[in-house]
Design a protein around this nucleic acid. Structure first.
Length: 746
RNA sequence: GGGCCCGUAGUCGAGUGGCUAAGACGCCACCCUGACAUGGUGGAGAUCCCAGGUUCGAAUCCUGGCGGGCCCACCA
């Protein structure tokens, strides 16, 4: 039953033409383009359901909503898939083509999942980051930022995998335990501890803790490197741990991240110690890899008597997640976007956006305040947007590409206007966050359609995970603000992650992954969507709950059955409508629910909204009101009032419920009124007296029910008399007798 | 070490100054009642993490402690 209804309405929604009048306000939603992995996980379902709730709510409120969907196709995982399938030796263009084909397959799979969820996405406005048109927009934006001085090329330490010969990102690091040896080496005035003696030639200073009594007198003096006999300064720094080793440490460029911090902080010189192949340079051991060099230098140091102590030491080493080889920090030419110089302004800009929940902005501010260096935007990869620049091989002069999209393989050679040398097209590609950080401009057709972008930009809202505030949200705000001088969206809404039912992260190795496809075998789409709403708290991780989705399914069945009851009474409306007190009560409650749900939706409190709807419909409308109408139909008393009230509740409830459970709500509405849901409720009817009286009345009904249960009677079993301590007027006394099958009230 | 979030029945959780601290799952009892047994009705079950403080009044606000989670940094 559910499946037929789902298919029917999905087809109707998709075939509906969407019209956007650029002369009116259009609410544009900046939806996350998922990475094209081929499957949506529960986190996607949560996030995209939130988006759909907002879109449907705003549509029903009468707004024009622009709700497109994009795909973040480019990136490392796809390259690995293709490498595994075709090897590493394909020509660049062919390799990229294979990646494109593979991504299209994945998009098809994910798209059908999204359609199955009933999302009201406008598929006529899809964007994919790997397409030439998208490349063109990205490259245009990058050239503009370069012209503004926001993008520069610089020699800078980067994380480098000597095995793969590529710069890599922090996110690609993995920790691995290594058995190392900690050597204490005599530097004349001080003894230092190190696990990497082979970097001795790249040593530029020795660090000690400022409060370390042992070295207080040495600070400001120099130490002498054995073998090389070079002097380096001894400097005091808070970051040194006096308890570790000798309490003195050599700074090399670069042994690890801490070296980089110290080198920057104390303005130390740089001696490049390792080349791109992982071999030593500028040393007495040039050409050896780090392992062999270490063995050789330890021998040499021992011969000199410079090693005063060695001890076994378990060390955590950062390795490349793909090849498991240790990474190095090396100097390399890379491209950067200058985030840091705009730090204060970026915080100010972010404050003019409405963050839900509010604390989300602290993730942003905190990160921005702790940035050590600018955003490295270049990568040595293939499946990415090429950097649209030429670099002079002699004087490093930069020229932007003349025509976009720009692909280095097909680029015409250039001559440097400065020195006349050959200019080679840059072969690096851009970080994928460069692609995805202009989505508000892409959505608004900023580079294609001025009129449309004026109506849609800044976008109404961005919805995204809290864990990528530091990347996607920050980069988007930064780029869009630098490109247009405006905020990308007026609001940003953050969602959390879905954990496994046991409260841990879902992971394949733990075997606790729950997939939407599996759930949909057992639960209707509208149940899964309600789960998303019930999952509640924004920007907070929450375990997946079978209880919630079971309840959601049970609720759908309840709604369906109650609707059948209402439907069976629908034809009988005629004559004047006289409302009894119970009618006035439920209409009053309906009005309160409309008010409360509207308010909750405006605050994006979906859990509050769906819970209010559930409780009202099941615990008030079904459990009490529906029962109150049965005798009236049997005895033909005030039937018109009952029909009017049942219909009104059903109508307004279905409109609100359609945000969360659109398939069934549209079906029920269609069966009752022969048309589609076309607006948010505006109904309002308040009767405080009826509310107070009937709530007393409900309590009395519960007491009669309790009495019958405790006497092993069925609810419908008649009883002779009932003694009440409360007082009810004639109408409610009659109601009590009829509803509970009592002969006399005393 | 820095930042953020959180601690309420067996479990999950609503509630951010004031009625008897929601609701769901689970548990117990009864009821096939005519929309629904994928149901109905009722019941048991809470030192609201601990200690102070503010207040006429604290689960709620403040301080400290204990415990958990997430992100970031991290020992050469």
């Amino acid at each position: 039953m559910f499946e037929d209804i789902e298919k029917k309405w999905q087809a109707i929604w998709e075939s509906k033409p969407r019209k956007y009048d650029p002369n009116r306000e259009i609410l544009a939603i900046d939806t996350p383009p998922p990475f094209t992995s081929g499957t949506l996980h529960m986190g996607h379902i949560l996030s995209y359901s939130y988006i759909d709730f907002i879109a449907r709510y705003k549509m029903l409120r009468g707004y024009t909503v622009f709700y497109p969907q994009g795909w973040d196709a480019q990136g490392f995982p796809t390259e690995i898939k293709i490498e595994n399938k075709y090897g590493r030796d394909l020509p660049r263009e062919e390799f990229r083509q294979r990646c494109v084909e593979w991504s299209y397959e994945m998009i098809d799979k994910m798209k059908s999942q999204m359609r199955r969820m009933g999302y009201m996405i406008d598929w006529n406005h899809e964007y994919i980051t790997m397409l030439p048109e998208y490349h063109r927009m990205v490259q245009e934006s990058v050239i503009q930022m370069w012209k503004q001085g926001d993008i520069y090329r610089d020699n800078h330490p980067v994380l480098w995998c000597p095995h793969c010969e590529s710069a890599i990102a922090k996110a690609e690091l993995e920790d691995r335990d290594f058995d190392a040896v900690l050597y204490d080496i005599d530097f004349g005035t001080v003894k230092i501890s190190t696990t990497r003696p082979e970097l001795l030639h790249a040593c530029v200073a020795v660090m000690v803790h400022p409060e370390d009594e042992r070295y207080r007198s040495s600070v400001g003096k120099t130490a002498i490197l054995p073998i090389y006999n070079r002097e380096v300064p001894i400097i005091a720094d808070q970051d040194v741990i006096p308890e570790f080793g000798t309490g003195a440490v050599m700074v090399c460029t670069y042994g690890d991240y801490q070296d980089l911090v110290w080198q920057k902080r104390h303005n130390l010189p740089v001696i490049e110690g390792i080349d791109k192949h992982g071999k030593l340079k500028n040393s007495n051991y040039d050409g050896l890899d780090t392992q062999s060099a270490r063995e050789r230098i330890v021998e040499d140091l021992k011969r000199l008597g410079a090693i005063v102590r060695e001890q076994r030491y378990k060390k955590i080493v950062k390795v490349h997640d793909r090849c498991k080889n240790p990474v190095e920090l090396i100097y390399s030419y890379e491209w950067f976007a200058s985030l840091r110089k705009h730090r204060d302004k970026l915080i100010e800009v972010a404050k003019s956006i409405r963050w839900t929940p509010e604390f989300g902005i602290y993730h942003y501010i905190d990160w921005l305040n702790n940035l050590d260096w600018d955003w490295i935007i270049s990568r040595d990869r293939v499946f990415g947007t090429p950097l649209p620049f030429y670099v002079c091989s002699k004087c490093n002069h930069i020229e932007p590409a003349d025509s976009l999209p720009f692909y280095p393989e097909r680029a015409e050679p250039k001559t440097c206007p400065k020195c006349g040398s050959y200019m080679s097209p840059e072969s690096k590609v851009l970080d994928v966050w460069i692609d995805s950080s202009i989505t508000p401009l892409v959505v608004s057709k900023y580079y294609q359609d001025r009129k449309f972008s004026e109506a849609t930009f800044p976008n109404y809202i961005r919805i995204q995970g809290v864990e990528i505030v530091r990347t996607w949200a920050l980069y988007t705000i930064y780029r869009v603000w630098r490109l247009t001088g405006k905020i990308p969206w007026r609001e940003i809404l953050l969602n959390g992650n879905v954990l496994a039912p046991d409260g841990r992260k879902m992971s394949k190795s733990l075997g606790n992954v729950i997939s939407p496809d599996d759930l949909l075998k057992e639960y209707p789409v509208d149940a899964l969507r309600q789960w998303a709403a019930m999952s509640g708290a924004l920007a907070k991780d929450r375990p997946f709950s079978y209880e919630d989705i079971k309840y959601a399914k049970a609720f759908l069945i309840k709604y369906w059955n109650a609707s059948k009851y209402v439907l069976s009474k629908l034809q009988r409306v005629s004559g004047n409508v006289r409302l009894r007190k119970v009618d006035r009560w439920i209409l009053h409650r309906l009005s309160e629910v409309i008010r409360d749900v509207t308010d909750a939706m405006d605050r994006y409190e979906f859990r509050e909204a769906i819970t209010t709807l559930h409780k009202f419909y099941w615990n008030e409308f079904c459990d009490f009101y529906l029962e109150y109408t049965k005798w009236r139909f049997q005895e033909n008393v005030d039937v018109e009032g009952a029909v009017y009230t049942l219909t009104k509740v059903q109508e307004e409830f279905s409109k609100m419920f359609s945000v969360f459970a659109p398939h069934l709500a549209y079906e029920v509405y269609w069966m009752m009124f022969g048309k589609e849901i076309d607006g948010w409720p505006t109904f309002s009817f308040y009767d405080e007296d009826a509310k107070r009286e009937v709530e007393r009345f409900n309590r009395e009904v519960s007491m009669v029910r309790t009495y019958k249960i405790s006497n092993r009677m069925s609810i419908k079993t008649p009883i002779e008399s009932w003694k009440t301590n409360d007082h009810f007027d004639q109408e409610l006394s009659e109601e009590l007798r009829k509803v509970m099958n009592i002969k006399v009230i005393v």
